[in-house]
Amino acid sequence: MRLTRVTLFFIALIIGTGLYLLMRQQLSVVEPQTYQATEESMVDAAQLLSAFVDADLKAGGFKKERFEDAFHGASRRKFKALIHGHLKDHMGLGAYVTDVTGKCLFDSGGKLEGTNLIQARDVALTLRGEYGARSSRTDDTNPFSSVLHVGALIGPMEDPFGVVTVYKPQSDVLPIVDARRRGIYWGTGLIGAGILFLVTAVFIWQYRPVGLLTEYAREIESGKRPPLPKLGAGKEVNTLARALESMREALEGRRYAERYVQTLTHEMKSPLAAIRGAAELLDEDMPEADRRRFLENIRAESGRAERLLNRLLELSALEGRSSLEETENVDLVPIVARAID
């Protein structure tokens, strides 16, 4: 069954390689797609806050206190949102507002107010009328400290007031990314295991009858007469089994015929020689008593030859059977005693 194992190995290798490449491709897009979806929602939030600030400006000026109260109130709110298996219980979105010179007028985190952010890509690009976004680390040594920023222009492009930027730590999104990665690992693993199990089961179903037929052929080769093994419902293997059975019967019949002729020739030599010798002596003159004795020898040897032929015919009928229709217990003691006597 070496061929079976080698075939299974290569099938497993091909399936494993394909699943690995598929999993690698899926994993490579999980993080970018998740951050892309997050960034898309941040663009909407930035445009919405820009509209609020613009409305305040039209009403008389930017009301920083109103924004502070809104963000502080939102940060203190208690909620539980189960998003595709990820539990979110706090607000992770922040925002800051800069004027046209880049000076920070408001920061929901309270750390950037008064800082000039004109060099920041989200502020500089937005003031030039482009899409302003950036991802910056709060700790250069920590790759998970990145914060995504998205800017939106406040006021018309001809005379802007400034820029409102919303920001969100990427660590808020990492649990979702990790959950999706685990789902890919589990899904790919289960699919691979299922395919390998199915392929293995099919191979066992196909090759097990072949193994049984191989053992059957080996037992025949060793001189045994085993019954035909049960091979299931497979049409091909059963056809092969019947062909092997027919070949076995044909070969056994041929070998038996050879043995039968050899045995018959050997066993018939003695009675035929005795009959021939007695017949030759009868051609000579001899006393009547001797003649009767030789005639009796001819009759005895003829009977012996007939009994021998009958027994060989019975033996031929018995050995021609592949199995016994009826079985019964036999006491071998009298048979052995009679054979010894």
Rank of each mutant, 00 (worst) to 15 (best):
M1I: 13
T7R: 09
I14D: 01
I14N: 00
T17G: 07
G18R: 00
Y20C: 00
Q25D: 11
L27A: 03
V29W: 00
Q33A: 10
Q33K: 09
Y35P: 01
Q36Y: 09
A37P: 00
A45G: 08
A46G: 06
L48F: 15
L48A: 15
F52V: 13
A59G: 13
G60F: 07
E68A: 14
D69T: 10
H72W: 09
R76P: 02
A81M: 11
H86M: 05
K88H: 07
K88R: 12
H90N: 12
G94A: 10
V97L: 05
D99L: 03
D99K: 06
D107S: 12
E113T: 15
I118F: 08
V123C: 10
L125Y: 11
G132F: 03
A133K: 13
T138V: 09
N142D: 15
S146F: 10
V147Y: 02
A152G: 06
L153A: 04
M157C: 05
M157K: 15
V163Q: 00
V164G: 05
T165H: 06
P169Y: 04
D172L: 09
V177I: 14
D178F: 05
R181K: 12
G183Q: 03
I184R: 03
I184W: 01
W186L: 12
I191L: 15
V202T: 07
I204M: 08
Q206V: 14
Y207F: 15
L213K: 00
G223T: 03
K230D: 14
E252I: 08
R254A: 13
R254V: 08
E258A: 08
Q262Y: 05
T265V: 09
E267R: 15
M268S: 13
L272K: 10
A273G: 11
A279K: 09
E280G: 10
L282W: 06
D283N: 10
E284Y: 02
E284W: 00
E288G: 05
A289N: 10
R291G: 06
R293D: 03
L295F: 01
L295R: 04
A300G: 10
R304T: 13
E306M: 14
L308I: 09
L308S: 05
L309V: 15
S316P: 04
L318M: 14
E319Y: 11
S323M: 06
E325F: 04
E326I: 08
E328F: 15
P334V: 02
V336K: 08
